[in-house]
């Protein structure tokens, strides 16, 4: 009961955040919201989860959740790596530009060029 309530709370939070936040793709926003709504439904109707699992050829509802979680986690991590690389690239451009602008010259050579 408590677990179900906590899970519902989390899904509601996701639903709310997805509803107010801007997404790069509208499709992603809709998917996240549908996912959260489905989450709430299945928390309170676990039998339906098992029915859905059997529909896609997986034994139990719990197994399906494990698979889905793995896939979502994987996609999230890949997304995070890509974002981290992009911001690293931006940082590199900034650092390189500054390095050239503030280059130091040895004694007696002054700043040429």
């Amino acid at each position: 009961m408590i677990v179900s309530l906590v899970a519902t709370g989390l899904f509601l939070f996701v639903l709310f955040v997805a509803a107010v936040r801007k997404f790069t793709f509208f499709g992603l926003k809709v998917s996240v919201m549908l996912f959260a709504a489905a989450g709430i439904y299945f928390v309170w109707n676990p039998d339906q989860m098992t029915r859905l699992a059997q529909l896609v050829g997986v034994g139990r509802g719990a197994d399906l959740i494990t698979y889905a979680t793995t896939v979502i986690l994987f996609l999230t991590v890949v997304g995070a790596i890509i974002r981290e690389r992009r911001s690293g690239d931006v940082l590199t451009l900034l650092v390189r530009r500054l390095a050239i602008q503030q280059a130091r010259f040895p004694e007696g050579e002054g700043g040429r060029g």
Binding site: G88, L91, T92, V95, R96, L98, A99, I100, Q102, A103, R104, F105, P106, E109
Partner: peptide, 9 residues
């Protein structure tokens, strides 16, 4: 001549 990267890249 020395060009300095403020952080390691």
């Amino acid at each position: 001549c020395v060009a300095t990267h403020l952080v390691n890249r």
